[in-house]
Design a binder for these strands. Structure first.
Length: 712
DNA sequence: TACTTTGTCCTTTTT
DNA sequence: GGACAAAGTA
């Protein structure tokens, strides 16, 4: 039950024990950020500087929030219940539930996840006869979410042009639809909570008086609205403690605004910016590689990680002939590491995009190496679970048209597209929900839901869920389906999840208990359920670089370091995009404790066709003396000869066709465009043309007779 | 109405 | 290669 302040380095200690002033902590990767944050909270509370109820601590992920609670719990005996610790969305939800009426919401309001939101937008577009070619639902969704995350309502969008005017009209209609149906999307949780406090001075003052210490994790990832939300609690006595790392900002594409760090420093007149630069995770060479790479970014607050650990091993670099070759090599290395005693769960294979996992999975599978892929379809996002949840939602909130449409005819009960259309017309006319106007065959469905509601009234959550999956006909339906067994298993798992959901008595600020079904549905929406089957088992860890943030591994593989992939082709056109890619690479490198592997492949199957990529510029930006090439460095010069000795190869590159002295797949040098790789060719002799991928300079067709191309 | 086949489109994504 | 939606068929 000790804080172990003596184990902190001077910077950590000064951050933890900072007197009453606002603070910005620039915490580098592996510098003990979470430790500082949690020790600070424990130090404040244990020292009697603040009551637990005076703490507001915000993170981005449920995982980080749980981790924080656990660590704080281990440092003190005080019940951390009184503290507000959670994600932005979780805390906003808590606030909206407590003041639903003031916020203009039904007390059992439901939360739409991104999938649900998209479905709602599609439905709206249909009902308003929107041309989906001109206004793709996806883009409407982005538009709406971007505006909400800027704190901008439809009425506040400047009608720049006809297009914007129309899109804004749809934004307004979408919000009306949500309001009518009693549902709230993710960004709405934030915005609604913000508006509630901004308009209700009494409420705002209440919370501003209450929260004396506001601590923010991953501050570089906050968007503009989140920052404004945080500022609502500002008062004479409130102190802000924001921890972040601008070099690890990898979510600007989602609206994160790194500028919040500078704004905070200025607006709160932060006297001391504390830099945590000592890294306790990685060996020297790995850190040097990361530092050298990130030094290429111009937009930085400036920070250099160091370690007292030794240099360690060099960074190992591998060039594969193909993605399959790369995968085969990974498998071999993993096997050899495992033989030498490295635990599989301490090895991470990272990639830029999810599509890359397949090839590696295939290779691992064929060699019988257990692995776990993160970030796939999550438990509460599975179709069968969503169906079951839709029934539950209709019990809690009959006006939820989203839920109605999802299951009115699932399992099929003869309510076809025609009947649905008629219902929608009637509902529109009456200004009511689909459930209200349900007649004909739909009336039977309505009765089913009503019966379920009355029969499960007051029953324990577990029995409610059991009743729903039995009486809805879901189980019956999946029994007859070819691959229904897994789905039935998942539905049974949902019953277990409901049974385990004994969340401490839900009491809101006004002392009313919140209905357990609503609490469970909220839980399902906010925590999509990262836990997977076979969670704690010994397995190789595979994930995108994005989802690796905050994690660490003894051994890390960063794969697919190729121009167009990493950095991604859709990011290299803008300098900011490229810098974000570089930060992403920085995050990837700094996940490694002892050993780091980097790899790229000459050819790769993408979207069903072979692509020829040149090595990533990031490989050039790491000093060569830190690296050890396992294959000859950028062995582009060697003519491409398939190696048949490798048994595991599943596909062979296309046979080389000679065109004007060049071959597809060959690496070339152009006097103006620099290095490139030939990806296509046509014609013969003097008419021969080749298509060359020059990486960030793009893909060009060149006439061999004219262009001064040289074999590189 | 419900199941099968063909045509389009591809980043990353904590909540 | 694979997800998803529109078009085609029983």
């Amino acid at each position: 039950m000790s804080l172990h302040l003596e184990h902190l380095n001077p910077e950590q200690l000064s951050a933890v024990t900072l007197p009453d002033e606002h603070a910005l902590i620039l915490a580098g990767a592996g510098s003990g950020k979470t430790r500082v944050l949690t020790t600070r909270i424990a130090w404040l509370v244990k020292g009697g500087r603040v009551a637990p109820a005076g703490i507001l601590a915000v993170t981005f992920t449920n995982k980080a929030a749980r981790e924080m609670l656990t660590r704080i719990g281990a440092m003190m005996t005080v019940n951390p219940r009184g503290m507000w610790i959670g994600t932005f969305h979780g805390l906003c939800n808590r606030m909206l539930r407590a003041h639903a009426r003031e916020a203009g919401l039904p007390s059992a309001f439901q939360i739409l996840d991104s999938q649900d939101q998209l479905a709602a937008i599609k439905r709206l577009s249909k009902s308003m006869n929107v041309d989906e070619e001109r206004f793709p639902p996806r883009e409407l969704q982005y538009f709406i979410n971007d505006r909400k995350e800027e704190g901008v309502r439809a009425r506040d969008v400047p009608p720049a042009d006809e297009n914007t005017r129309r899109v804004t009209e749809l934004y307004a209609a979408y919000d009306e639809q949500c309001q009518r149906e009693g549902v709230v999307d993710f960004p709405e949780l934030l915005l609604r909570s913000y508006e509630l406090l901004a308009r209700n001075e009494i409420l705002r003052e209440h919370y501003a008086r209450r929260f004396r210490h506001i601590l923010v994790d991953e501050f570089q990832d906050t968007n503009r609205l989140q920052y404004r939300w945080l500022k609502l609690f500002r008062s004479q006595d409130a102190q802000y403690f924001c921890v972040g790392d601008d070099d690890q900002s990898i979510y600007t594409f989602r609206g994160a605004h790194v500028g919040n760090m500078g704004d905070f420093e200025r607006e709160f007149k932060v006297k001391h910016v504390i830099r945590l630069e000592q890294n306790y995770r990685s060996h020297g060479n790995i850190l040097d590689a990361a530092n050298a790479l990130i030094a290429n970014n111009r937009n930085r607050l400036g920070k250099n990680l160091w370690t007292s650990a030794g240099k360690g091993e060099p960074v190992r670099v591998f060039e594969g002939e193909s993605d399959n070759d790369e995968a085969r090599w990974i498998v071999e290395e993993v096997q050899s590491l495992a033989r030498d005693g490295t635990r599989l769960s301490h090895i991470g294979v990272l990639y830029r995009s999810n599509a890359q996992s397949r090839v590696v999975e295939h290779a691992l599978f064929s060699q019988g190496i257990p692995y776990r892929v993160y970030g796939g379809l999550r438990f509460f996002e599975r179709a069968e679970i969503k169906h079951a949840l839709a029934y539950l939602r209709l019990i809690a909130m009959p006006d939820d048209d989203n839920a109605f449409l999802r299951v009115a005819n699932f399992p099929p009960r003869g309510i076809g597209a025609r009947s649905i259309e008629q219902l929608q017309d009637a509902a529109k006319l009456a200004g009511a929900s689909l459930m209200k106007v349900a007649d004909g065959k739909a009336a039977a469905f309505k009765r089913l839901i009503e019966d379920l509601r009355s029969q499960t009234q007051g029953l324990p959550l577990k029995e409610v869920v059991e009743a729903v999956i039995a009486k809805s006909g879901l189980i019956e339906h999946y029994k007859n389906e070819r691959e229904g067994a897994d789905r039935i298993e998942n539905l049974e798992e949902l019953v277990n999840a409901a049974a385990a959901f004994t969340e401490e008595e839900r009491v809101n600020e006004s002392g009313e208990t919140i209905d357990p079904l609503t609490a469970f549905l909220t839980h399902a929406a906010l925590e999509a359920g990262e836990h997977q089957a076979g969670d704690g088992q010994e397995a190789l860890q595979m994930m995108t670089v994005h989802s690796a943030k905050g994690l660490e591994f003894d051994v890390v593989f960063i794969t697919g370091l190729e121009e167009g992939l990493f950095p991604h082709e859709q990011s290299v056109t803008e300098p900011e995009g490229l810098e974000e890619e570089r930060r992403l690479a920085y995050v990837a490198i700094t996940r490694a404790r002892h050993r780091l592997y980097l790899s790229h492949a000459q050819t790769r199957m993408l979207h069903g066709q072979t692509r020829y990529n040149i090595p990533s510029r990031f490989l050039e930006e790491i000093p060569q003396e830190l690296m050890k090439w396992l294959t000859p460095r950028f062995s582009r010069q060697k003519p491409f000869t398939p190696d048949f000795s490798r048994q595991t190869r599943t596909t062979l590159p296309r046979p080389a066709r000679d065109v004007g002295g060049f071959r597809i797949g060959q690496n070339v040098m152009h006097p103006k465009f620099g290095p490139g790789v030939i990806i296509d060719a046509e014609g013969h002799g003097n008419d021969a043309r080749v298509q060359v991928n020059f990486g960030n300079l793009g893909v060009k067709w060149l006439a061999v007779a004219v262009a001064k191309l040289q074999a590189a």
